[in-house]
Design a protein around this nucleic acid. Structure first.
Lengths: 146, 146
DNA sequence: CTGGATCCGACATGATACTG
DNA sequence: CAGTATCATGTCGGATCCAG
């Protein structure tokens, strides 16, 4: 992630419906790799990004607070993730030039709209995790039987 | 499979609201790693999974058809992805015992509900990709200036 | 045609140490 | 406190070969 930061993917799908038209074409969206949409999707659907955005909903948090709240994130990954989100205009970073450095992170309006969307995905997962767990057990059992 | 397929993460967040209750607690969901929700999320938000589910919406496709439609996917990744989705009960795999093997993939009802959700995420991305692109340019320009 | 198995390189991520 | 820099490594993913 940190390496290839300045890729310039093709705007393949920013055709018409990207502007907001109620295009409901079932499938045909990206398919092609190096598509901007797919790239953004990968970033947005990222493990840590998801968590950061969720935690930042409606409140500011400092670097260390975020780090403490997100179990398992390394300092490095948190920094990288925050930078990406900042670059994408989803998170705003405010530095207070005081003696012990103080940096606060918060969602931008754009980030806020994403939060809603992400929340939908999370809710879906929460609602169906049991079904998925069951499906896995069934699948594994079937496999083991063979 | 080769990667971590048989992890048994803790059911940390499958508490109450997971059952479907209209719980709108702003943030507190996973945070902890090795949380089942987070694991499912990672799978579901996966690059290839997203594409496969999108393509499978409302129609069956054969292995080769999928491979052809998804630009850039290797045989291996497609196989792995399909297996995961099948295990999770999102995709149904049907094998026809004919001379040239014929295997068809289609979404299960559960997979169908996920498609809707994913579609939301994709739509968001499509609608905001310009804003994000602009934010990136602005950010990069700001950086370069320094 | 479908896909399992293996080898292997590349990149993402983690751990650690250092700085303003 | 909030990073940056460096090094170590695990995993992902691609290529290839092979089998039912």
């Amino acid at each position: 992630m940190e390496e290839g930061t300045s890729k310039s993917p093709s705007h393949c799908a920013d055709t018409d419906h990207a502007a907001g038209a109620a295009d409901t074409d079932p499938f045909q969206w990206d398919t092609r790799e190096d598509c901007e949409v797919r790239q953004i999707l990968d970033r947005v659907a990222d493990k840590w990004s998801l968590l950061v955005i969720a935690l930042l909903d409606r409140r500011k948090l400092r670097f260390t607070e975020l780090r403490r709240e997100i179990d398992g994130v390394s300092q490095r990954m948190l920094t990288v993730t925050l930078r990406q989100l900042e670059r994408d205009g989803l998170v705003k970073r405010t530095v207070y030039p005081v003696v012990p450095p103080r940096v606060e992170y918060e969602l931008t309006p754009l980030g806020g709209t994403l939060h809603t969307t992400i929340r939908t995905l999370v809710t879906w997962t929460e609602e169906h995790q049991n079904e998925i767990a069951a499906a896995r057990e069934a699948y594994d059992a079937r496999e083991a039987a063979v």
